[in-house]
Design a protein around this nucleic acid. Structure first.
Length: 349
RNA sequence: UCAUAGUGAACUC
């Protein structure tokens, strides 16, 4: 049983859904009692790739396995539904929980609050927080942070800050994610100094900055025209033992290209590739786009090849741009060659 | 805790 669950987890990440179903059926046929665990794993796997209807189907089929959904299964379903904006369905899942005597927990509420905020249903989200308190289901740092983030993204800074206050009054300590949300918001508002103050505050309170903190700051400082400070933040990050990840690299590469520092941007790519982290699709798009904008068309093709060598293929937008450019240059052969090299795209200029 | 929730990056718009 334990082994099965581990296997299903792996299959789920590999999107081998059919294999999971076969495994579940095999388990049932061999008389193994199927618990809610493998179903939760399956529902989550569907959820991750946005297959909400399949997630719903998996949830319903639990019945056929005489398996009663628990709060984990409900939460996974809610998550899958909200990810693709099935708000009505999610709300009815939430009602079902109550009817089936399954008490929502803090994860249930946080999932709902996050989902509702994402689609602008801030009042509903806010009401849920009140409902939690009334039902003696204590919100935690994640719950408050989700709501803070929701208000910030919706441009309701006052409410965000009020929630942030409320959180602390209730004894929930802000963590790195909470700070990162606020830091990012200050940066986006063009107030990197405020963001830096918050950085000091978090450090002062013993909360370690992470990738998110530094990346948000670096981006904000570049945006505010303070490239030198941004680069010193990179050094600080490395000095503190927090190594840049792919998002940090993308931020750097993007800005360096904008600042016409393409050599530095390419140096970062070298550095990145010489280290643990491989470029991902976003790094790829960032760099290619940056090189085009900076007029470094000489470097475009060899960079594309290097990244493809690392298994990092251009996305649709980049690919179209590349092919267009090659065709304009009259290098249609190279364009066709490139298209062939990129699997599974049927794009033609 | 064998399974679930909140942050950061490019392009497109």
């Amino acid at each position: 049983e334990f082994t099965y669950c581990a296997l299903i987890e792996i299959l789920g990440r590999a999107k081998e859904f059919q294999a999971i179903w076969h495994l579940l059926n095999a388990m049932r046929e061999s008389g193994i009692t199927v618990t809610a665990v493998p179903f939760t794993t399956l529902i989550n796997s569907y959820g991750r790739v946005g297959m909400a209807e399949e997630a719903e189907q998996a949830f319903r089929s639990m019945q056929d396995f005489h398996c009663k959904p628990n709060v984990y299964a409900y939460n996974a379903l809610l998550n899958a539904q909200l990810k693709v904006q099935r708000i009505e369905e999610a709300l009815s899942t939430f009602m079902d929980m109550a009817q089936n005597g399954c008490d929502p927990d803090v994860v249930t509420y946080t999932t709902l609050i996050t989902g509702l905020c994402r689609y602008g249903e801030l009042d509903k989200a806010s009401n849920l927080l009140d409902e939690m308190v009334n039902r003696e289901c204590a919100p935690n740092t994640w719950t408050y942070t989700a709501l803070v983030q929701g208000f910030l993204k919706a441009g309701h800074a006052e409410k965000a800050l009020a929630t942030y206050e409320q959180m602390q009054k209730k004894g929930c300590t802000p963590d790195a994610v909470t700070y990162n949300s606020l830091i990012d918001w200050f940066c986006k508002e063009g107030k990197p100094d405020k963001a830096l103050e918050l950085l000091d505050e978090m450090v002062g309170k013993g909360c370690d900055p992470d990738f998110g903190t530094y990346t948000a700051l670096i981006d904000g400082l570049f945006k505010a025209g303070r490239a030198d400070m941004a680069l010193s933040t990179v050094r600080r990050m490395i000095r503190k033992g927090c190594n840049p990840d792919t998002a940090t690299y993308s931020t750097l590469i993007s800005w360096l290209c904008k600042e016409a520092e393409t050599e530095e941007a390419l140096d970062f790519l070298d550095w990145m590739m010489s280290r643990d982290s491989d470029p991902n699709n976003i790094t790829n798009a960032t760099l290619i786009n940056g090189l085009f904008k900076a007029g470094r068309t000489d470097m475009v093709l060899c960079t594309v090849r290097r990244m493809m060598g690392k298994g990092c293929n251009p996305n649709k937008v980049t690919c179209t741009a590349l092919v267009n450019w090659l065709c304009k240059q009259g290098k249609t052969d190279e364009a066709v060659e490139l298209l062939d090299a990129i699997t599974g795209t049927g794009l033609t200029p």
